[in-house]
Design a protein around this nucleic acid. Structure first.
Lengths: 135, 135
DNA sequence: TAATAAAATAGTAATCATTCCTGTTTTGTT
DNA sequence: AACAAAACAGGAATGATTACTATTTTATTA
């Protein structure tokens, strides 16, 4: 299947590149629709899947039941806030060494790992402290 | 909300304890139904969620779109086969140290991490080698 | 430039896992 | 035995995602 240009795909990719949060398909849809009100949700899903398949974007699953997408395909880790659900990039070294640990007592072939972190993000912590000291 | 005994919940927990693979709700349903053909899928889901909430079982998400459940609640890691989809326990040390690495340049509070590994399991590799040498 | 085939789209229907709802049944306590 | 809280069965609803189909775009070739 030879890839052909599509204005919609370009818009989706361009939109993703402007964001460093990690939008869901629905958020991509509502935003791209502001430039092209006729775009359909199916087109957004199809192109996000296609772009992820050819490696131009990456699909992020952090256990919240919705796929997130990231124009930054370099290997890096994410943090999910259990309060607000935001997905944030982490600055840390790669952990591929843990694959060796995992493979030590295992008879299969380990190709990689998925890791993400969770907790309370900086924004969700601050409001509480403000309330404490603010009274 | 005070917990009350339920035959169905007991059957679900008992079934889970007999398995070291990591069944989905649907697999629990079809199996438990052999002892109690009247049990409803909703009951299975409700009890799996309840048991997970009170910590008697754990819910496992490995990005395949379906929740898996495990009667073994001790912290351990899983491997997912990209061929057959099976979820297998790994024997390896705990990796909580990576939380420190993740928190070093981050302003939020990291509570924990989720990690799983993927690749081809022992069973899915063997058939290929058999085919190679078998001709 | 017109013809053409493959790819992509819009719009909608379908799927699938999971949750919710409601009238009935169980459980546990008084 | 009476009662309230909890749980159930069965089915409807939800929400994310995929599939389908007739139409439009893209890219190539004559």
């Amino acid at each position: 299947m030879v890839l052909k240009y599509s204005k919609q795909r370009e818009m989706i990719k361009d939109f993703l590149m402007t964001r460093k949060d990690h939008p869901t398909a629905d958020i991509v849809y509502t935003n791209v629709r502001q430039q092209n009100p006729n775009i359909s949700l199916g087109t957004v899903y199809r192109n996000l899947t296609l772009l992820a398949d050819i490696g131009e974007i990456s699909r992020i699953r952090v256990g919240d039941g919705v796929d997130h997408f990231d124009a930054d395909t370099s290997p890096h880790y994410h943090f999910v806030c259990t309060e607000c659900g935001s997905v944030i990039d982490l600055q840390m070294k790669n952990l591929d060494e843990i694959v060796t640990l995992a493979g030590a007592n295992f008879d299969g072939q380990i190709a990689g790992h998925v890791t993400y972190f969770y907790g309370v993000c900086g924004n969700c912590r601050k409001p509480v402290e403000t309330a404490k000291t603010g009274n």
